[in-house]
Design a protein around this nucleic acid. Structure first.
Length: 484
DNA sequence: GCATGATCATGC
DNA sequence: GCATGATCATGC
């Protein structure tokens, strides 16, 4: 018998805490002398590069029960689920949750469970024994990762209405035969993440729509939600989270998104100058001003809205002209040519960004020399667009980079301009490529060189250097999506 | 007027 | 100093 009471959460947690300071390799080696450890496993725990098996290793070698894929909790009598998960240490020394927490597979092949509290998800998340290890990528083997924390956590009462709403949103999509259109960015804390490759074996038949297969997915807590758990319950620190909704009972009447949209609606028609007076803020043309006003309308002083951070919601402020046009497209983080050339669509930065990020657009519209609050909308990219048009554009960029970007150098009055054949705005309905650096910089095989290539450029597969670029969302697409 | 290349500004 | 968001400027 293992030395803990598997019917008692406190006993399980106390035993788990004895893992702190050990590496997975140590746990395995010590288990060789333990009579209760599982010896006849079909997994070889002596292999130093355990991929998804670090959790199984703890279950079998340390807790002494057979790892299984059942949708019941791991310690059914104590209603505790064991999850091994990782954190990274960022350059600024802060901890960061390494991955989303996968709770349980979503079954598309049978009727949905409508009551959250009767669902497998609730079984798997009501009491989670979180075993946090440091994913130190400088180590040669995964089994050398060290365990730092072991805590039982439950979703906070304040988070449950949002999690339940997320659950309902996901099962409603499945029930209406649209499981193939699910995206992790559809919801706030509880997500439907992809699971497995895009290969045929990772697709499932839909009970509610047998004609259209859907990619395998699992319920998960989003990475950003895990970040909140890490910084709040596991290693409390000074990370700032300002709640938007202080009175949780509001969430029993309306959804989070309704409440937030109504907050902005109160200000529709107000000018930026009026808002500055209202919020006692100096009016200037500082471009951060409108974003700042957006947060003030939402009721917080800084820009660390708790629910937005936990749900990975990005606030975007757009200023429209009087004819509802929008002068600029929106840029996204810069990328490295050689990295993109080696990625596949499913694990590309672009795919992950739009699959996981939800947006909250706040629109101001020009009226003479000021802007009035005009509209607001939550949005995430529809999966058809992401896996159709955006994927095609991304593939085109990848191919151009691999084939070799073609450059045309033009002398103009104001200096030299270097043109290229990467994806332009006319080439794709949704995205295009533009430079993203402080200065232009090139070093081409033709001998042409300009600017600081180590600072403002990065290398192409053929050894040439080109000004660092990023993806942009076409303004025309944004206007279309916002119904303007 | 728009598309595209170039650059600025700010916060950490 | 860099990452990121935002905007400028010119030629077609």
């Amino acid at each position: 018998m293992a030395p803990y009471d598997n019917t008692n959460p406190a006993s399980i947690e106390a035993y788990a805490k004895k893992l702190i300071g050990k590496t997975f390799k140590q746990v395995y080696e010590e288990s060789l002398d333990l009579d209760f450890a599982i010896k006849d496993s079909n997994i070889d725990y002596s292999n130093p590069n355990q991929k998804g098996n670090l959790g199984n290793l703890l279950e079998e070698c340390y807790f002494g029960y057979k790892a299984n894929g059942e949708q019941d909790a791991d310690f059914p009598e104590a209603e505790v689920e064991l999850k091994a998960t990782c954190f990274d240490i960022l350059k600024n020394k802060k901890l960061s949750a390494g991955e989303r927490l996968v709770l349980t597979m979503i079954s598309f092949e049978e009727p949905v469970e409508k009551d959250f509290y009767q669902s497998h998800v609730w079984n798997k998340c009501k009491r989670i024994l979180l075993i946090y290890y440091h994913r130190d990528k400088s180590l040669a083997y995964n089994t050398l990762y060290k365990i730092h924390y072991a805590n039982i956590v439950s979703p906070a009462k304040a988070d449950l209405p949002i999690i339940i709403n997320d659950y309902n949103k996901i099962i409603e999509k499945i029930e209406s035969g649209r499981a193939h259109e699910l995206s992790e960015s559809d919801t706030l804390y509880l997500g439907a993440c992809t699971k497995g490759s895009t290969a045929a074996k990772s697709w499932r038949t839909q009970y509610y729509n047998p004609e259209v297969p859907a990619r395998k997915r699992a319920f998960c807590f989003k990475r950003q939600y895990m970040d909140y758990i890490l910084h709040t319950y596991i290693v409390p620190d000074k990370t700032t989270y300002e709640p938007l909704i202080k009175d949780v009972s509001l969430l029993h009447e309306k959804s989070f998104e309704q409440i937030i949209e109504e907050r902005i609606e109160q200000y529709y028609g107000k000018t930026d100058k009026e808002l500055c007076t209202l919020f006692d803020r100096e009016y200037n043309n500082n471009k951060a001003q409108w974003t700042d006003l957006a947060y003030r309308m939402l009721g917080i002083k800084g820009n660390h809205a708790e629910e937005f951070q936990k749900a990975n919601i990005v606030v975007k402020v757009i200023r429209l002209e009087e004819d509802n046009s929008m002068n600029e497209s929106i840029s996204f983080p810069a990328f490295k040519f050689k990295e993109l050339a080696e990625q596949e669509w499913e694990d590309s930065d672009v795919f992950e960004y739009f699959e996981e990020t939800r947006f909250f657009y706040i629109l101001f519209k020009r009226d003479g020399d000021c802007y009035r609050v005009h509209k607001c909308q939550f949005w995430n990219m529809p999966s058809d667009d992401l896996n159709g048009t955006v994927k095609a554009g991304w593939e085109q960029v990848k191919n151009t980079i691999i084939d070799g970007v073609r450059f045309t150098i033009k002398e103009t009055k104001s200096g030299v301009i270097v043109k290229n054949n990467l994806l332009g705005k006319k080439d794709n309905r949704i995205i295009h490529i533009r430079p993203h650096a402080s200065k232009a910089a090139y070093r081409l095989n033709s001998g042409f060189e300009i600017g600081k290539v180590d600072k403002d450029a990065n290398e192409l597969p053929n050894g040439e250097y080109m000004t660092t670029q990023s993806f942009w969302i076409n303004n025309s697409y944004i206007l279309e999506q916002l119904g303007l």
